[in-house]
Amino acid sequence: MGFDLDLLLIFDEIYKTGNVTRAAANLGLPQSTVSLGLGRLRSHFNDRLFSRTAKGMVPTPRAQNAIAEVRRAVQALQHALADQPVFDPAASTREFRICMTDISEVVLLPHLLNHLRQTGPGIRVEISKISQDTPAGLADGGVDLAVGFMPHLEAGFYQQVLFDQHFVCLAAASHPRVGAALSREALLRESHIRVLTSGTGHAIVDKILAAEGIERKIALKLPSFLSVARIVAQTELLAIVPFRYASEVASSEAVRLLPLPVELPRFQVKQHWHERYHADVSNRWLRQSVANLFAD
């Protein structure tokens, strides 16, 4: 098994802190990434390396014997990486390939493009839709980054939480029967739009509503969220959508955001990437730009 710098840093940080959560925070990595890294280290060394005790994660004799070599390897790699060229976005003509949900195209993409115009006017972007093929695209190098709510990318990829989301109801500003609040009766009575997204987890809406004994009257099914706001504004149909999407479209369409009379689960929008691009300087710059723009 090959080692990268992150694995060695994970070893060293757990050794220093005796705590996986604290090690993740110090390294700026998700706890899940550090836990996966520890699993890879244990497999390589064929040893637990750190045993959980009342005093924290205590190094085994194997870890104690290896720590000096690990730290020497970290220093050597950091010295070698220090000679890497710095990515200059202002001079770059690189094309980034980003997979997005259709909601991210509406909510995030315009802001990202405006940022790139200011910081890297020669940079080009190719957008593709999130699908069940996205993990393979990230792994084989066809995709640099995936952004959105994508439960099927939770395992096996680096990830960073950008912000939390919750659901609201979108209604026309002039809707004749829906006022400032949406009752359970109105939710049942009115006709709805359902978006047939795939791979983004929005099917949870109907599952939770069904558990609450609510079956929506679906009058229109759409393949994406791109036209939802315009249709809602010009009809009497309702749509259950993520809050940031609703906030974004409310600035350009005659729609209202209404709290739902039932509680739906919150979810997290993240950016995901494969380990092959983890250390690439241009991809690191892109991920940092996305985090600076959108992270809560």
Rank of each mutant, 00 (worst) to 15 (best):
V70L: 13
R72H: 15
A254E: 12
F11G: 09
E95K: 12
I193K: 04
S128L: 10
L257P: 14
G39W: 09
D12T: 14
G156L: 10
V70D: 11
P261A: 10
Q160A: 11
Y277E: 10
R62Y: 09
I123R: 04
H152V: 08
N19V: 11
I214P: 01
A155E: 07
L5E: 12
A254C: 11
S227E: 01
L41Y: 06
A229P: 00
R48Q: 09
Y245G: 09
S128F: 02
A139Y: 07
R230T: 07
I10M: 10
G122N: 10
S251F: 03
A155H: 05
K55E: 10
D6T: 14
P85N: 13
R287L: 03
P259W: 05
F87L: 05
F225C: 02
A146G: 05
H111C: 12
I240A: 01
A25T: 12
E126T: 11
R97P: 07
Q234K: 11
V147Q: 05
R117C: 05
D4N: 10
L162S: 00
A250F: 03
Q288H: 10
V107N: 00
G201M: 06
R244D: 00
M1V: 08
E212V: 04
R62D: 15
V255N: 03
S198G: 13
V86I: 12
A80D: 04
A250K: 06
S51C: 13
A233C: 01
Y15N: 12
E126I: 11
R244W: 01
L188C: 13
L260Y: 04
L29W: 15
E253G: 00
L29S: 09
L41G: 04
N19H: 13
R284P: 07
A155W: 04
S282F: 07
L77Q: 14
A155Q: 08
E253C: 03
R62E: 15
F163E: 06
A82M: 13
P61C: 12
L138Y: 00
E95G: 05
S174Q: 14
R194M: 02
P176A: 06
V107Q: 01
A254G: 02
L187V: 06
P121M: 15
D12K: 08
H115S: 15
F50D: 09
P30I: 05
C169F: 06
A229K: 02
F11D: 01
T119Y: 13
A229S: 00
E105Y: 06
L138S: 00
G142I: 07
